[in-house]
């Protein structure tokens, strides 16, 4: 097995090979062990400085990245768009180059514009990790989701994964589809037709508009958050009549799980709208691995940062 990633940046899952993903998982196993020790830290990245640049709100991802960086002993600087020079009209390249001039080796960035990372990777000289770009990709979330599934089910080859909810606005859904397919899993998406992109079947995924049928098919159900902030953004037309109607047709409740003759795994990338896409009793049930996902998030991000840092040239 090759010990190096095939890429210089993590811009999206689309660029990774299945071997890259397995290499990340292998290292995540070891980092998960590290973060469960009395001393949760290793000195590997003491020469590396990482800037976390969040041009869009985030609590969990930012915290998870920051913990991952600190547990690898990297120096960390944080930047958020609110209250910065971005509001004074500075361009993205200028902002990043200014930060790099302070001798930063790696940038973890979240940006509202799809492709911002791709663009930046072509114009600045640093290693870039995508922590979410608009509705495009959120690669570390997909990696930690697949890693958490693998922990429960073993290798994902042939496993059936259902993604429910707002597929159209979800970078988590797109990254998950790429990641799961690269690992050999079958993917189905489910939601109201207004929230399913028209040509998504082209990606080789199945489409369903009936939650009960879809649940009967799957081994794992990943319930996405209804992104209230992105609803009505398309010509100000709402995508479904009301939250109540959405939750009646596509919200996962205990009654759904009781109807099944098998035990499925329930996931959610957070933050949860309790009572909308998932009811509280399901979110807190033994089916749910939501908190495992959060723990694994740190280990998987440590693996990604470690493997990319190994590729940074020394001066």
């Amino acid at each position: 097995m090759n010990n190096q990633l095939s890429v210089q940046h993590l811009l999206g899952i689309k660029d990774l090979t299945p071997e890259d993903i397995q290499l990340i998982f292998k290292h995540a196993d070891e980092f998960k062990d590290v973060i469960n020790r009395p001393i949760k830290k290793v000195p590997t990245l003491r020469e590396i400085t990482i800037a976390n640049m969040f041009f869009e709100n985030s609590t969990r991802t930012k915290l998870s990245f920051e913990l991952a960086e600190k547990r690898l002993s990297a120096d960390v600087v944080n930047f958020s768009a609110s209250g910065s020079s971005v509001s004074k009209g500075e361009t993205l390249i200028d902002t990043v180059n200014n930060i790099l001039a302070m001798k930063v080796d790696m940038v973890v960035m979240r940006h509202p514009n799809p492709g911002a990372h791709q663009f930046l990777s072509q114009h600045v000289n640093t290693t870039i990790i995508n922590a979410g770009d608009g509705t495009h990709e959120h690669p570390t979330q997909a990696l930690l989701d697949a890693y958490s599934m693998r922990e429960q089910l073993g290798e994902l080859q042939g496993k059936k994964v259902l993604i429910v909810g707002d597929i159209k606005h979800s970078r988590v859904a797109l990254s998950n589809i790429f990641c799961l397919q690269k690992l050999g899993a079958e993917v189905m998406v489910c939601g109201p037709s207004t929230l399913i992109p028209k040509h998504i079947a082209e990606l080789g995924v199945q489409v369903s508009h009936n939650l009960d049928e879809a649940l009967a098919w799957c081994d794992v159900a990943n319930m996405l958050r209804i992104q209230l902030e992105r609803q009505g953004s398309d010509n100000h037309v709402a995508n479904f009549p009301s939250l109540r109607e959405y939750s009646m047709r596509f919200g996962l409740s205990k009654a759904h799980l009781d109807k099944l003759d098998k035990k499925i795994i329930v996931m959610h990338p957070g933050p949860i709208n309790r009572g909308v896409e998932i009811t509280s009793d399901v979110a807190d049930s033994e089916h749910s691995i939501i908190l495992d996902q959060v723990e694994n998030g740190v280990a998987v991000r440590m693996a990604v940062i470690f493997l990319l840092a190994a590729k940074i040239k020394r001066n």
């Binding site: 097995m1 010990n3 190096q4 290499l23 292998k26 290292h27 196993d29 070891e30 062990d33 590290v34 290793v42 000195p43 590997t44 990245l45 020469e47 690898l72 470690f306 840092a309 190994a310 940074i312 040239k313 020394r314």
Partner: peptide
């Protein structure tokens, strides 16, 4: 014991070392 994350030759080798299990 795996030493990968504690080595002093990180980023100095031609071919990086892959981590092994610590138990």
């Amino acid at each position: 014991l795996d030493t990968t994350f504690f080595r002093d030759d990180f980023r100095r080798r031609e071919q990086p070392i892959a981590a092994n299990a610590t138990s």
